[in-house]
Computed example of a mutant assay.
Amino acid sequence: MIRGFATLNFYAADLEAAKAWYTELLGLEPYYQVPGGYIEWRVGDYQHELGIIDSRYAPAGATERPGGAIMHWHVDDIEAAFERLLAMGAKEYEPITKRGEGFVTASVLDPFGNVLGIMYNQHYLDVLGK
């Protein structure tokens, strides 16, 4: 039934600020945009989609604080990625934490209140290598 990660969506009240912040973080321009409503990038080895939706379109009952699941993006150097995110104005949500051999996670709150998880994941590298 579940085939794989397709699109991760975040919300931002200031869509243009979110576009600028994520464009700097990712080092690439969005590939798709709906003016005033939605921005999307294709990211990483498998071109996963990261979308930012204007918070005016958030589902009814959405909270103003982080909650739910955390999506972790693989990074090759978790310490450098974490420091870069903090230097760009993100706030620590969860510190760098070793979860087991070859698995280290951390997460931040982006300037728009979304939880952005990062992870060094040996399994990701093993699958990519095949």
Score class of each variant (00 low, 15 high):
E29M: 12
L50P: 12
K91A: 14
A87C: 06
A60P: 12
Q47F: 05
I52H: 02
D76Q: 09
G61Y: 00
W73L: 14
W41D: 00
G68K: 05
E49R: 15
A80S: 13
W21F: 15
W41R: 10
D54A: 11
A69S: 12
A90Q: 07
W41T: 07
E40T: 09
E83L: 09
V34D: 11
W73E: 10
Q33Y: 02
R42E: 15
V43N: 07
H74K: 09
A20W: 02
V43D: 01
G68A: 00
D76L: 08
E64P: 08
Y11V: 07
G36H: 06
P59K: 07
D14H: 00
A62T: 15
L86P: 10
Y38N: 09
D45W: 02
S55Y: 03
A58T: 06
T63Y: 08
D14W: 00
E64R: 11
P30F: 00
M88H: 09
G44H: 06
A81R: 03
A13P: 12
V43K: 10
Y38D: 04
A13L: 14
R84G: 03
E40V: 08
A12R: 01
R56D: 00
A12K: 01
G36S: 03
Y32T: 08
H74S: 04
L15M: 02
G51W: 10
F82G: 11
G89P: 06
L15Y: 04
M71T: 15
P59Y: 01
I39F: 05
R56W: 00
S55M: 04
R65T: 15
A69V: 14
D14G: 05
G51Y: 09
Y31M: 12
I78S: 04
R84D: 03
A90C: 15
I39Q: 11
P30E: 10
